[in-house]
Amino acid sequence: MIPQSLIKATADQLMAKAAIEIPDDYLSGLERMADTEQGDLSAFVIRAMLDNYKAAKEDRRAMCADTGVPRWYVKIGNEAQIEGGPIALETSLRRAVADATQDIPLRPNRVHPLWRTDHNNNCGIGAPEIDYAFHPDADWIELTTVHKGGLFGSDYRMLFPADGIDGIKRFYLDTLVSFGKRGLACQPAIIGIGLGGSKDICMTLGKQAACLRTVGSINPDPKIAALEEEFRDFGNSIGMGAMGFMGSSMVVDCHIEVGYCHTGGLPMSVHMFCLSSRRASARVYKDGRVDMRGDPNWFTDYMRRDGVDWDGATSLAAE
């Protein structure tokens, strides 16, 4: 049984880590861009951000005051048992968000859409979102928090099979440019693209591709991996850099995730995970061990399974 107190303590720790410490994979990606960026202004912005991450860590303060909308991704091992069950788990995760809002502090961003009621704790109806996935042959749970910011940077469109790769490219470019101008998306960003699925899943896939895959990771389908690389380089070649200034720094990395969709359509979503690409993950074991992890390991072979039954053959790839 995984103790609830351990879950809450880990969740508290993850909330602070996400808000304050830029993930290593994103940091290295941005450092590489700082070295290659030729635009004066764009390069200055990137270097200021590198200073900012340092200041945040040194002072233990939030890296960006728009602390986003904290949410949770929970991966549950097939054999895991959680003290108090899922209800207790959700209570711990909500409490961790409320506590972090006061203690770090975070900005109380969450309000009722119509009445703008603010509980000053980032909790409310449907907030924080908690998404679940499962993992075979495991008795741990993995907690990942993502504090995605930005009103800008995501869009959805129903394309059609005939639109093809050139149509996909067009919508990708439209989204990059419309949100990249004046730097509204706070690029350079991790771009997540969702292709296929039903509409809501298309959005979800793209968002998770942006927020839950690390910079440098590639899609296991080699043809999709090639597209990821092509789209990353393409995004960096349009002449736009940080804050929309002249430059070559738009896309730190591009991740594409796919899901089977209706035969007549090709739904597509694009998401931009900003200069504050905040995520933190940990695996929690029943014996009290907690592993802080740099990679949320969200997209596993099991998650991307294609057939009807799961034979377990490749499940270890996620370890």
């Binding site: 951000m49 900012n52 200041a55 890296m63 960006c64 005051a65 728009d66 200069l275």
Partner: peptide, 14 residues
Amino acid sequence: LTTVGYGTGALLGR
């Protein structure tokens, strides 16, 4: 004046 980044919240906080 525009802020920079725009995520330089910690520097500004300082």
